[in-house]
Design a binder for these strands. Structure first.
Length: 114
DNA sequence: GAGGTGACTGCGA
DNA sequence: CTCGCAGCCACCT
């Protein structure tokens, strides 16, 4: 039971991930950086792991590593679902890597910059 | 309470 | 170009 923490680091991650528009993807580092911890990219990964238990729907398949590689696909059920969802949004995946990744990359630091 | 792990990233050799 | 190491923080045993 958290003490006074209504929202956790995870909740912030979920919110950012939910803001990712269809046909776009983001990276762990970008989200971590947006939250103020560029080195805490691992926590974003853990947040995604917790996303499976999240009440709200979290499009974790839109979150990939810096290289556009589907590093977390193995954590999906089934794993191939991640690639399928991305392809369903009009993206091309080859060898677990997003083609033209730079074009579909969605950076919260840029899109959500105030 | 302490140690190990992990859906990552950046820099150095 | 590829390979290896260190930093980061929360969760699990």
């Amino acid at each position: 039971m958290p003490k006074g923490d209504n929202v956790s680091f995870f909740d912030l991650v979920f919110e950012v991930v939910r803001l990712i528009p269809p046909g776009r993807v983001s990276s762990y580092g970008a989200i971590a950086s947006y939250l103020g911890s560029g080195k805490s990219s691992r926590m974003v990964g853990w947040a995604m792991n917790s996303a499976s238990s999240a009440i709200l729907n979290v499009p974790a398949h839109r979150v990939v590593n810096r290289n556009g590689l589907l590093t977390g696909k193995a954590h999906f059920n089934p794993p191939e679902m991640m690639q399928k969802l991305l392809e369903n949004e009009g993206m091309t995946i080859e060898n677990d890597q997003i083609k033209n990744f730079k074009a579909v990359f969605w950076d919260p630091n840029i899109e959500l910059r105030l």
